Amino acid sequence: MASSVFYLAHLPSPPIPLPRVPGPKLAPFTPSAQADIEFLEFLGHENDVDSLVWKVKINGGLFALKVFFFRRWEFLRDNQGADLTTPLANPQLYVDYFDPFNCECRAYGRLKEAKREDLAVKAHGYLLLTPQQEIELERRVTAIDPDPLPDANASELTGHNFWTRHEQHRGLPVRAIVKDFVPGDRLTSAQVRAMWPDLQELHSLGILVGDTHGGNYLGGKLVDFSRSLTMYHPGLHYIFESTQREMMLEELQHLLDYYYYLLNWSSTDGIDIPQDLEAFCSGHLDEYQNLPIKHKFLQWEEDPDAAMKFVEQELFKKEVD
């Protein structure tokens, strides 16, 4: 009797840019998507739920490595994909579009396409951890020697393990993205001034960041795109207009709050609150021109017709007559 468990698609070998749906993608950091990694220092926060961020050394260079936990496709459907007015055609698509790793791949892929990597802390590519690296990182975080076998080989995967693997993730390696290491130095006034223009440029490239609070900035640059939606994205297109508006308003309000925080609590001189940002957050959002959904995403596609065919014929569930 065939198993009723749904398994997510295995990653291609040799590695290719991800995710595997039309649109922007991030290439592997090395041809094999593997590397010798020296884990130096934990950089994240205790309450981080999507990932771990570590200062690492790879090939003699210092980087920040963002390592992602697994998320069930049902969780992504019921949370990040909850506002869709039309269900996606299959479980894999919820992972391709809403999984935090894939969200980051799509956002950074768009920045690379547009040659605007200056708008965020730079990402260099993705890596796939080896079983030995999984064990080492788990040991470093928990200070407990894990079972000699990584949880990937457990007899039953229920999510109650370090990497939150479920049966649907069996056979999948832990994924990570290599980024520039940015020290947490004092912000300059120039860096603060650039945050609002940078966010507008990100929106104009079809990227809704999803989380622009101050903790997602380093050196005045965004570093976290794990909740981002990058055109073409069903989470921007197939939702109610009122929901789109709420998402945009929340995006701008978080940045405005950060400006006020820096004005009142930081030691950086010369901070001014952007008046147009404040106006957009105070009842004038209809005047904002850089809505991500307006981005002409087909300009980046090698085969625009195939991309549109995918969106129109393969992305969503067909209605039953």
Rank of each mutant, 00 (worst) to 15 (best):
A2I: 13
S4P: 15
F6R: 02
Y7N: 15
Y7P: 05
H10Q: 12
H10C: 11
P12R: 11
S13N: 15
R20D: 04
P22Q: 03
P22S: 05
K25H: 06
A27F: 09
F29V: 08
Q34L: 10
Q34P: 02
E38Q: 08
L40H: 09
F42N: 13
H45D: 03
L52C: 03
V53C: 04
W54S: 00
G60V: 03
L65P: 00
K66D: 01
F68H: 08
F70A: 09
N79R: 14
Q80K: 09
T86M: 14
A89V: 08
P91L: 11
L93M: 13
V95H: 04
Y97R: 01
Y97V: 00
Y97I: 01
F101S: 02
F101C: 02
N102C: 08
C105H: 03
Y108T: 00
G109Q: 10
R110E: 00
K112C: 06
E113P: 00
A114Y: 07
D118G: 08
L119Q: 03
A120C: 09
H124W: 15
L127S: 01
Q132M: 10
E134I: 08
E134T: 07
I135W: 11
L137M: 14
V141I: 15
D145T: 10
D151C: 14
A154V: 02
A154G: 05
E156V: 14
E156H: 12
W163S: 01
R165T: 07
H166T: 10
E167K: 14
Q168P: 13
H169A: 14
G171K: 03
V174A: 01
V174T: 07
A176V: 00
V178D: 01
T188Q: 08
V192R: 01
R193Y: 12
P197R: 11
E201G: 02
E201T: 14
L202T: 04
S204A: 15
L205G: 00
I207G: 06
I207L: 13
V209G: 00
T212D: 02
T212R: 03
L222V: 15
V223T: 13
F225A: 08
Y232P: 13
Y238A: 09
I239E: 01
R245D: 07
R245L: 06
M248Y: 14
L249Y: 08
Q253W: 12
W265I: 01
S266T: 05
S266Q: 06
I271N: 03
D272T: 15
I273P: 08
P274V: 03
F280H: 06
S282W: 05
S282P: 08
L285N: 09
L285K: 14
Q289K: 15
K294M: 12
L298M: 05
L298A: 12
A307S: 13
A307K: 04
M308L: 14
L315G: 03
F316C: 05
E319Q: 15
